[in-house]
C-alpha cells in the first residue's frame, strides 16, 4: 500500500509540459494565460503553498504581435545603479536585441510578487523560433490554445484560391501595383 500511495503522490504532483505558439499573439494577454499554467492554478489540487506549477515551452516568440503602436511607444526602463545609469529601451529595440525578452518580462510582471516568482520563471522556456531541443519536445504532452487566430498572408494562398475569390470587378491594368 505504501508503494501505491507513493506512486499516487508522484502522479498527482507530476509536472506537465505544455507548449505554446506565440506567433501573432499579444504577449501581455498571453502572459495571463501562461501564468495559469506556470503556477498550476488550473489544477483542482491548487493551493498557494503547494508546488504544483507546470513547465511551458513557448515557441516563435520572435513573431509576437504588439497591439496598436506599442512597438514604438512601449518603453522598458533599466537602471544600472550608477549615476546616469538609466536607460530607456523601446519595445522594438529590445525585441531586436533579444526576441524572447518582451514575453519574458510580460509573464514575469503578471506573476504574483512573492519569493516563488523567480522559481516559477525557471519553468518557462522561451524560444524565438520553432527550434526546440528534442529532449524538451519529448516531454511535452499538451498544447495551450492561442488567444487569436493567426492571420493568413496573401502569398500563402494558392493561385486557385485567389482566382476563385469573388470580385465585383477587375481593376484595369494601370491600377495594379507590381
Amino acid at each position: 500500500m505504501a508503494v501505491l500511495k507513493r506512486v499516487q503522490q508522484w502522479a498527482t504532483f507530476a509536472r506537465i509540459w505544455h507548449i505554446y505558439d506565440a506567433a501573432w499573439q499579444n504577449p501581455f494577454e498571453s502572459a495571463g494565460v501562461l501564468k495559469k499554467y506556470l503556477t498550476g492554478l488550473y489544477k483542482p489540487i491548487y493551493h498557494p503553498m503547494n508546488d504544483c506549477g507546470d513547465h511551458i515551452v513557448v515557441i516563435n516568440s520572435a513573431e509576437i504581435a504588439l497591439p496598436g503602436d506599442e512597438w514604438k511607444k512601449r518603453v522598458y526602463f533599466h537602471h544600472t545603479g550608477y549615476p546616469g545609469g538609466a536607460t530607456w529601451t523601446l519595445a522594438w529595440e529590445l525585441h531586436e536585441k533579444d526576441p524572447t525578452m518582451i514575453l519574458k518580462k510580460a509573464v514575469y510582471s503578471s506573476l504574483d510578487k512573492n519569493l516563488q516568482r523567480r522559481y516559477t520563471m525557471q519553468r518557462l522556456h522561451i524560444f524565438p523560433d520553432a527550434n526546440v531541443p528534442s529532449d524538451m519536445l519529448k516531454s511535452i504532452s499538451n498544447q495551450i490554445k492561442q488567444l487569436r487566430l493567426v492571420p493568413k498572408r496573401l502569398d500563402t494562398y494558392s493561385e486557385e484560391e485567389i482566382k476563385s475569390f469573388p470580385k465585383i470587378y477587375d481593376y484595369p491594368k494601370p491600377y495594379i501595383l507590381k
Binding site: T12, A14, D21, K43, P44, I59, A130, Q143
Partner: peptide, 22 residues
Amino acid sequence: WTPYTFREPALNLVDFPNEELS
C-alpha cells in the same frame, strides 16, 4: 486527482507542436 485523470485519450497520439490544437 492526477493531471491524467480527465485527459482526452486522443492527445496521447498527437505530435507536438500541433497546429490544429493551437
